[in-house]
Design a protein around this nucleic acid. Structure first.
Lengths: 213, 213
DNA sequence: CGATTTGTTGAGGCCCCTCAAGCTCCGTGG
DNA sequence: CCACGGAGCTTGAGGGGCCTCAACAAATCG
């Protein structure tokens, strides 16, 4: 399985940092813009910052020696990421689409209580992800994925996927073909409806929920 | 798949709490003894304590509606568990064998810094577990499992498994038969050697490490 | 509007699951 | 001490779900 994970397209906007009017309420600093597949931090790098996703999305992943990639988390608009054990990043973080990030310094700006809550939420999410990947069928995984994303976007019924089928596959432990087939199956069953490749409308939320266990 | 997870054998020693000479240096309180398969806490219960494993082992898991069980973590001697997001337990915790636990009250006894480190380590471990379950073959999963356990027991070369094949399967997303077959394969290849069913000697650590990616 | 990336669908094969039978280990009681 | 029973483990045979390989369609971008 070959995933061109390190194939970093440089931002079409020259470097990366560019000031912007603070469009999100709780945004303190400036917003940095990134093109798709831009590296935010790499495994082994010293960790010192948290990042808040203003728009777009982030994938956090690791590569196996043979090229297999496992994405352990996506981070969507409004979410904060970058907190890691030991002061060194254990994973890679990249944008999946055009993304705006604001930096949050670890010292100050966030009280220990918030950091703790963030760490615990991340642990919980990793474990819930494990439930999905460990014991569910392909269709169940896709279902759980859609429900998770929909909830995190604010219980919406129409999702704009911020990632490719390859990203989704590497997140769920499936191949791109199986992801595609599962989506088609959900469409054929009338559970979801596609408006373009990346826009999914959840037509029958109850049946989707049934799938997830 | 039927896993009799709630089949709680009551401790052969009457109840549970029984004082014992503090045999581990950093042990503050009394040690409670539990029989195999004793419930320590249940999903939905109010969380307020941490537990330190003095000897034995703990499985942390959740059940799907149809009985499928996913173990998200094992906790071995010397490790602390019970920290969860939201003040309510999201998982079940049970002993896998005869186990001694000491309670640690969340307020006091542990400084916030230690709690934070514990949370971050748990997050990291869940994510590393995800790497194994998401993209590895059965043999690779068993290999990674053995390496992980060996390291956590102090880089030993002989492991006393504190859990059944069923536990291991539900941890790695495999059936009991596949776990058994993988062990046999490692034995036939001369990578490990069995001294009884639960005692594994790692004969060729380098080859075992090669398996894990 | 052509080139390239991304997504869909089909055919075939493999790995793991399922089902089944027999074995080992261990605690219990005679 | 050994016989016995049951739970746990091992091994085999067969089937199914997902992966692999392949071709084509759709979407995206310069």
């Amino acid at each position: 399985m070959f995933t061109s994970a390190r194939n970093l397209t440089q931002p079409s906007t020259p470097a990366a940092l560019r000031p912007l009017a603070g469009s999100y309420p709780p945004c303190v600093g400036q917003i940095a813009l990134f093109a798709p597949d831009a590296e935010i931090f790499a495994q082994g790098e010293r960790a010192g910052f948290l990042y808040r996703v203003e728009f777009g999305a982030i994938r956090v992943y690791r590569l196996h020696a043979d090229g297999r990639r496992q994405i352990v988390a996506f981070h969507l608009a409004g979410e904060t990421f970058g907190l890691e054990a030991g002061g060194t990043h254990s994973f890679f973080a990249e944008t999946t689409v055009h993304t705006g990030l604001s930096k949050v310094s670890l010292a100050g700006e966030m009280v220990p209580q918030e950091l703790m809550a963030l760490a615990l939420r991340s642990m919980l999410h990793a474990r819930e992800h494990l439930l999905v990947v460990g014991r569910q069928s392909a269709l169940e995984r896709i279902g759980a994925f859609l429900v998770d994303i929909a909830v995190r976007l604010g219980d919406v019924d129409t999702i704009d996927l911020q990632m490719t089928r390859l990203d989704i596959g590497d997140y769920l432990g499936l191949t791109i073909e199986t992801v595609s087939r599962s989506f088609s199956r959900l469409r054929d069953e009338g559970i979801v409806k596609f408006h373009g490749v990346k826009t999914i409308e959840i037509v029958q939320p109850e049946r989707l929920a049934l799938l997830c266990g």
